[in-house]
């Protein structure tokens, strides 16, 4: 294997490892929501340190790759997209931790409350989307990444409903107001988490097709003002 191929394989392998740990963080956050005894918070913290370390490692490895191999075309897009993906994975890890922190304060959380806000469905969509984008990255397949763009709409929709659901629930059970408000915060974070997964999907499409999807609406402005 040529040095460039070795270096790119190392970057790819480490990205996948970071991805796996991030997926575990989401699973653990979901488990924690149902049963706080099932998840060791120490383990979550340790995983987060791994995620941060992988982000740093990928940053240095990508910097070296750019300096040593001056990549072009698909190789350049691979490094650029990997840098962005590692940033998004780190943010996803952060979101998972923040969700756990929020849930920690919800001592009287019930399954009915979780069901009311469709939080399990949001977690499931996030986990499924993250798995799909990983598959898309590993197989260099932008079609799979495109499926995720559609799934993000589900998260947005559920998050939009959260406030009105909380208002109704608080009116019925004002003693649980704090929990309901915390659950809206959880749905908001899951929606943000979905945005990061969508960013990753867009990066994979850029990597494979050289098509930049982000800020599509600003494209005309860019062409008129900055190009």
């Amino acid at each position: 294997m040529l040095p460039q191929e070795q270096a790119s394989k190392m970057i790819r392998d480490n990205t996948v490892k970071m991805w796996m740990i991030t997926s575990v963080q989401i699973e653990k956050a979901q488990k924690y929501m149902h049963n706080k005894e099932d998840v060791k918070l120490k383990e979550l913290k340790k995983n987060e340190k791994y995620i941060d370390s992988y982000e740093l490692k990928l940053y240095f490895d990508c910097e070296n790759f750019l300096a040593l191999f001056s990549p072009v075309a698909i190789d350049l897009r691979f490094v650029l997209s990997t840098l962005h993906i590692s940033y998004d994975l780190e943010r996803i890890g952060d979101m998972a931790r923040k969700i756990v922190q929020t849930l920690k304060t919800c001592t009287t959380l019930t399954e009915d409350m979780i069901a009311l806000f469709e939080i399990d469905r949001m977690f499931d969509v996030c986990s499924d989307s993250l798995e799909k984008v990983l598959n898309a990255y590993e197989t260099i397949n932008s079609d799979i990444a495109r499926q995720v763009l559609v799934q993000d709409a589900i998260l947005n929709e559920i998050n939009k409903l959260a406030t009105s659901r909380a208002v109704t629930a608080i009116q019925k059970n004002p003693q649980d107001a704090e929990i309901y408000l915390n659950l809206t915060s959880v749905t908001r974070r899951l929606e943000r988490l979905g945005d990061h997964i969508k960013n990753i999907a867009e990066e994979i499409i850029f990597y494979v097709e050289a098509d930049v999807l982000k800020h599509k609406k600003s494209r005309d402005f860019l062409e008129d003002n900055l190009l």
């Binding site: 072009v72 075309a73 698909i74 350049l76 897009r77 050289a210």
Partner: peptide
Amino acid sequence: IFTNPKQEKTQ
């Protein structure tokens, strides 16, 4: 050519 060549041979 150096960001997104059309031909696979070029890439």
